[in-house]
Nucleic acid binder design. Structure first.
Lengths: 213, 213
DNA sequence: TTTTTTCTCCGTCCCATGACGGATCAGAAA
DNA sequence: TTTCTGATCCGTCATGGGACGGAGAAAAAA
């Protein structure tokens, strides 16, 4: 029999860790080398555990999965990381792929799919969940109006989304109110919204300034 | 030895179901009678499984946990339902308790806590997760400014949060623009915000109109 | 090089917005 | 009954917000 595949899990749900551990124990060719309950903990201990494959949750209290993925791959690019997240959180897919994750599964995936994905990752093959893949292709040619904004306009939009007035924005950016109004008008036409309130709503609905951009 | 406690799990994550099942199998006095992958499925099959305790996830694709909790307890009030959710989703705690759930756990809870909660629920004792409890007490005397709003004002605020102008709101509610402005001003003073944009931001940050209210 | 595009900046004009005051009506408390 | 409180409604008025036009500078294209 060949060498076992060394697998590590990073998830802040104890029951998920205990559960997946118990389930993977039934697989002869998989060896459970350890687990971490947060992204930061994973970065600290993965080298000692020396897993070949890391199952990584995204949303965790202490250090998110994307950051942990980056750091781990920086230290050891040979690690194969499978993202295993609860929801296809809108625009977390791109950052995860960019961070170097090999596969992207939803927790709604069946246990068999997870095992299959582990084997495929072991052979260097990528698996992307169907729903996530749809997001990807629709987002590939992402003509997001937001990306049409200039640097200055993005700054202004963020301040709008924080509830700032034009005068406040002018003070914060050390420019005239009239100039702010120009940027604001430009933002409206690019985002195809009518006023600053709709622009702020757009920012919130697209999670623009809540995470990494 | 006494009768085993009959337990059923409702969760749309296959790995959580398989995992918890494997883990609970180590408990002598707990019997796993079945599982459902959605709220609606749970309502359909719980009677046949005849569990004593139901572990219920909240966020599911097909029929959420709160609705399922209500329906199950309507059919059989003797069932003891333990909410087992991923995040303390802001204001889902109240509806869950109102629906008749006996306990409220987070999935970050340790497996031992879950087992302990099952035993306590079996003896009729309620367990509320610490973080959730904090939310509860801070929410008990919930001086949320939002609750200070009148019915009409809530309607207006929702339309503001949808990006509507005063004129559009007037048309939608069949009242004059001046009247709308009065409501709008009243909303601002109660929410302690300066303009409609900040009001919309308030609505989004408090998840006001995204779920049941 | 010149030309064109783009980004950033500032000005003028008009209207929706929001502050303030007041009227009407309904229900509760005296 | 009267009184009081609060919800809903409409008026007047000053101002911030948004549309439009344009200038200078720098980068890209010719």
């Amino acid at each position: 029999m060949t060498e076992k595949i060394r697998v590590m899990l990073v998830d802040d749900h104890d029951m998920v860790r205990k559960g997946l551990k118990a389930y993977l124990a039934t697989e002869e060719s998989i060896e459970w080398v350890g687990e971490a309950s947060s992204g930061n903990e994973a970065v600290r201990i993965f080298a000692a555990l020396n897993p070949e494959i890391i199952l990584m949750d995204l949303i965790m209290e202490d250090g998110d999965g994307i950051e942990a993925t980056k750091q781990i791959l920086t230290q050891d690019p040979s690690k194969k990381i499978i993202i295993l997240t609860s929801f296809y959180d809108d625009e977390q897919v791109f950052p995860a792929i960019e961070a170097g994750a090999m596969s992207y599964l939803l927790k709604t995936a069946s246990s068999d799919e997870i095992i299959e994905t582990i084997y495929k990752a072991h052979r260097g093959k990528t698996v992307i969940d169907g729903k996530v893949a749809q997001k990807l292709v629709s987002g590939m040619h992402r003509n997001r109006p937001f990306d049409q904004l200039t640097t200055r306009e993005k700054e202004v939009l963020q301040l709008i989304a924080e509830g700032k007035s034009n005068a406040e924005i002018a003070d914060l950016l050390f420019i005239g109110i009239k100039t702010v109004k120009t940027h604001v008008s430009s933002i409206f036409s690019k985002l195809e919204v009518a006023d600053r309130t709709q622009a702020a709503i757009y920012a919130f609905q697209n999670h623009l300034f809540t995470k990494h951009n």
